[in-house]
Each structure stands twice: as C-alpha cells, then as structure tokens.
Amino acid sequence: MPAAADLVDSLCRLAALTLDPQTRVDLEADLPNIIAYVDQLRAVDTSGLDEHDLSGAMAQPLRADVVGPSLPRAAILPPPPRSAGAYFAVPSWRDLEAG
C-alpha cells in the first residue's frame, strides 16, 4: 500500500474529488485503518467459489426490452449550468499531470 498522502492523492484523482486540507488529514488517517480492517478477508478460504456465483443465485428473469417514447428533456433535467443549443457545455479538460 502506498504512503497515506500518496494514496489519498491518487484516489482523489480517480474519483474526481477535491478535498479541503482538514478532510485530507482525516482521510490520510482513516483510509489505512479501514483497509487494514477489510484485509481480514484475505485469510478466508474461498477456493471453489467464483466471484459471479452469487449473481447467478440472486438473478431474476429479465423482461424483453420494449422501445417506448422518451420523456421530454425539459421535463427530466433542469436548465444546465452551461449549454450550447441542445447540448451541455463544459469547460476544457486540462491534463494536470502534464501541467
């Protein structure tokens, strides 16, 4: 496991979260403790079991897809913060790693 500060940095980038300084400090303490707690699972013998066994046991038969009318966009979404005609408008993406 990487150092706590590096771990939080990396996870925040993946999860698109910007944290204030105090929250960062709290998470740098909390996350290693939670990870150590769930590490208990590694000791459980699960040989013979597959990750997807449960989804088979719990699955329900699916109905056939039926094409139907969509709700009007104006009824579904409030006016977006920024728009360009019928589209959402967003600012450009700057690659932070590239500076």
């Binding site: 925040c12 979260l17 409030p78 977006p80 913060p81 967003v90 600012p91 450009s92 700057r94």
Partner: peptide, 19 residues
C-alpha cells in the same frame, strides 16, 4: 457531476470543476 444535475461549482477547467 454537477453538469447534468447536482451541486455545481463554476469553473473554466473541467477536472477542477468536477472535483
């Protein structure tokens, strides 16, 4: 993401705005 719905913080950089 604050774009289609949810709490929105204005910004001129997408990554910073989402974060």
């Amino acid at each position: 993401d604050g774009i289609r719905y949810g709490h929105h913080v204005p910004g001129d950089d997408l990554a910073a705005m989402l974060g």
